[in-house]
Computed example of a mutant assay.
Amino acid sequence: MTTTTLDKAADVVVADERPRKRRRGLAPGKRLPAARLTGPLLVLVLWAVASAAEALDAAAIPAPWTVVETGVQLWTDGTLITDILTSLQRAASGFAIGLTAGIVLALASGLTRTGEALIDGTVNLNRAIPTLGLIPLFILWLGIGETFKIAIIAIVVYIPIYLNTHAALSGIDNRFVELAEVQGLSKLRFIREIVIPGALPGFFVGLRLGVTGSWLGLVVLEQINATSGLGYMMFQAQNYGQSDVILVGLVVYGIFGLASDSTVRIIERRVLSWRRTLSS
């Protein structure tokens, strides 16, 4: 082999040993602070511009400043704060029950074949039935008071939490199970070190859906034989044609929904900080 040939071969080896440059531009990029508020703020700006230009019917869609003025007035006379506290109590009670039921049922169904046979089909049957369609039956069973409202909210919450957590449990790679058996892990340690970390991403997806569902169910339930709450306030405003009061209720619902979803996102990022995902 000639010297020239050896030199070329050496150059090829050196070129292969050089670190390859990382391709850029495929990932979404760095996360911007408060980026999810851009959309709502844009809607607010367009609403304000259209109201200022008198492009909207003020009787049907009042201007943002009119809604703010009405909200301040309702807060000052104590009406709004009372309705908010009542709605928060209902949503929190139903959410706590639904969260507990969803986790317990998902663990029982996802970790045992007997639990899966008894629970999974029943929950999917419940999912196929419109939850709000259960209202007349629950009124006959539990009465027209607060109990049936909390029960309906609990059902709305537990279904997405169960489905996503159960799917995450069922999707754990069987190689991890085999590795745990080889390592001689106990059942409790297996659940703590493999099952729970593997199911957490799915659980948080269900948790976000459950939080949103609690507010969606509440706005309907508070219009049924209620004497307080944001839904009741909006229903009364409808009878008197007070669109500004209805918009106040919708804005408050939106704020609580966005705040609760953002809280779950923050908790999720902290708990799952060990994961390297596209969003991070």
Rank of each mutant, 00 (worst) to 15 (best):
G229I: 10
G171V: 03
S87K: 03
W274F: 10
W141H: 01
F204W: 05
Y162S: 00
I191F: 12
E116Q: 11
Q238S: 09
T70E: 13
G249H: 04
L107I: 01
E222C: 09
A101R: 02
I155T: 12
Y158T: 00
V248I: 10
E116Y: 01
A58Y: 08
T263Q: 01
G202V: 06
I61D: 00
S109E: 02
K187C: 00
A92S: 14
R24H: 09
S87H: 04
A15N: 13
Y253C: 09
R24K: 14
G198D: 03
I152C: 03
G217C: 08
P201Q: 08
T76H: 11
P64V: 05
V252E: 07
L80V: 07
A59K: 15
T277A: 12
A259Q: 02
T66R: 14
R189M: 03
I196F: 11
A237W: 13
G29N: 01
L179M: 15
P19M: 11
V271L: 08
S243Q: 15
I159K: 08
Q89V: 11
L163M: 15
F190W: 13
T114G: 11
L250R: 06
E54P: 03
F138M: 14
L209A: 11
I129M: 13
N239V: 07
F256E: 07
I139S: 09
L169Y: 00
E222N: 05
L207Q: 05
L32T: 09
V245Q: 05
L207V: 01
A48F: 14
